[in-house]
Amino acid sequence: MLSGLLRVLRSVRWYVRELTDESAYDRYVTHVRTAHPDALVPSRREFERERTERQESDPRQGFRCC
C-alpha cells in the first residue's frame, strides 16, 4: 500500500514539474554534460535569466496586445 502511494506521489510530482517546465534546467544540464562535456554549466539563475531574455526578445513568444 505504501509503495503504491509513493509511486502515485512520484508520478504527480513528475507531472507537475513537466507541466510547469520546472524540469527544463535538469534536461539542459544533462544535454550540456553529454553533448559538450568541456563546457561550463550555467547556474539555474543564469539559465532562467537567459531563457527569459530569449523568450522576451522573440516576437512569437509571450503575449501581444495586437
Rank of each mutant, 00 (worst) to 15 (best):
E53R: 14
E48R: 06
E56A: 12
D21I: 06
A24S: 12
L5N: 07
D38T: 02
R45M: 01
T30I: 10
V41T: 14
V29A: 07
W14D: 15
V41F: 13
L2D: 10
R17K: 13
D26V: 12
S3F: 08
Q55G: 08
R51P: 00
L6G: 06
R60K: 08
S43T: 15
Q55S: 08
D38I: 01
F47N: 01
V16C: 14
W14E: 13
W14R: 09
P59N: 03
R60F: 04
E46L: 06
L40F: 12
H36I: 11
A39H: 12
P59W: 04
A24L: 04
L19W: 14
Y15P: 00
S11C: 13
R54F: 05
M1D: 07
L9E: 14
R33D: 11
D26P: 05
D26M: 13
R51K: 05
W14Y: 13
R7N: 15
E48W: 04
T52H: 10
D21E: 12
R17G: 08
G62H: 14
R7W: 15
E50R: 15
A24D: 04
T20H: 09
Y25G: 02
S3V: 07
V12S: 07
R27Q: 10
C66F: 09
R64T: 02
L6R: 04
F47R: 01
R44N: 06
F63P: 00
R45W: 12
L40E: 14
A39D: 11
P42M: 03
S23F: 06
D38N: 01
V29Y: 08
H31I: 05
H31M: 07
V41Q: 03
Q61E: 05
L6I: 14
P59C: 01
L40I: 10
P42A: 11
V32G: 00
C66E: 06
P37G: 13
P42H: 13
C65T: 01
S23K: 11
Q55Y: 07
C66A: 05
L40A: 08
T20A: 10
M1R: 04
E53K: 02
